[in-house]
């Protein structure tokens, strides 16, 4: 039985889908082949915007920065999240408190986190370098040093987001049947052995999901550079998202920004696609 009134219930979402997503996705594709100034008619210029990007050194530098950030952030963040999940898996007294504390940075806004960490990273009077100096290490200048700025942003992001993936891993861990561990224990296998041969394989579908979502998120890094570095020092923390933003709203090259937006979109899709292709090699299927 079909219900006509269904479309009434769907109306708000359908309007939003058309006006804010489908329309803009198509408009953006079309306009990426134009020279476009707001308030004026776009002029078609073919693939110029794309060619210009591919010929610009800055574009390649920004692409490299973004990939470097993804590689710094994604593996480390997944390992930390999994470690946290293993730590809070056992239902000991007071575990809810620890779970809440570990999740706290997730509810904190990224802007607040970025501001707090800028202060921690302060190279003259910051807490971090003070703590390093106590154990006799001369800390780097973090956000002011082109070599350290991007790792510093990655470190802050790990602190900020680890709790989220921790919860997803925790859900995955609790759904692994206890009998498997019991049986292996009776056979005399140690904790590491059980982790390596029971937990990891059975958790791998969850790990795959976490990997895909975390990678997409990492490519989009924006607020951190907006608040902490504005892409600097030099262009060392200029990432694709922030560069698209600059092109559009600092240099008013809207056509170029939309072309870069599409390159970005295709890049993320391609990486996601590759992850799906590689899935069979390591994800356990029941």
């Amino acid at each position: 039985m079909r219900t006509r009134s269904a479309y009434l219930y769907l109306l708000p979402i359908l309007i939003g889908l058309t006006v804010f997503t489908a329309g803009p996705v198509l408009a953006s594709l079309g306009l990426s082949f134009t020279h476009y100034d707001i308030g004026q008619a776009p002029t078609f210029i073919g693939t110029s915007n794309y060619r210009e990007l591919f010929h610009s050194d800055l574009f390649w530098q920004v692409l490299l920065n973004t990939c470097y950030y993804v590689l710094l952030y994604v593996p480390a963040s997944i390992i930390v999240s999994l470690a946290l999940a293993l730590l809070i898996e056992r239902r000991v007294r007071g575990i809810a408190f620890f779970r809440t504390v570990y999740f706290l940075p997730v509810v904190t806004s990224i802007v607040a986190a970025a501001i707090i960490w800028s202060w921690l990273y302060n190279s003259d009077v910051g807490l971090l370098n003070y703590l390093f100096s106590v154990i006799g290490i001369n800390g780097p200048k973090w956000l002011e040093d082109p070599h350290w700025a991007l790792p510093a942003i990655a470190l802050m992001s790990i602190w900020k987001n680890a709790g989220y993936n921790m919860m997803i891993f925790l859900a995955g861990l609790t759904s692994i049947p206890k009998d498997y561990h019991e049986a292996a224990r009776l056979d005399g296998s140690g904790a590491w052995h059980r982790f390596r041969h029971i937990t990891l394989p059975l958790l791998s579908p969850v790990t795959f999901f976490v990997l895909v979502v975390t990678t997409i998120g990492a490519f989009q890094v924006f607020e951190q550079t907006f608040v902490m570095t504005n892409g600097g020092p030099g262009v060392s923390t200029l990432t694709l998202s922030y560069y698209i933003w600059q092109m559009a709203f600092r240099f008013f090259d809207l056509g170029g920004a939309m072309a870069l937006g599409y390159i970005f979109f295709l890049l993320v899709l391609a990486v996601t696609g590759l992850q799906f292709l590689a899935r069979r090699k390591w994800v356990f299927q029941q």
Partner: peptide, 26 residues
């Protein structure tokens, strides 16, 4: 039940894949 239910749901879910960088300017 309504016409296009499955397609619409799939389209809706797939919008989660679209990054803001693409739609932001329009």
């Amino acid at each position: 039940e309504f016409r296009g239910k499955r397609v619409l749901f799939a389209v809706l879910l797939s919008t989660m894949m679209i990054p803001f960088q693409v739609t932001m300017i329009p």
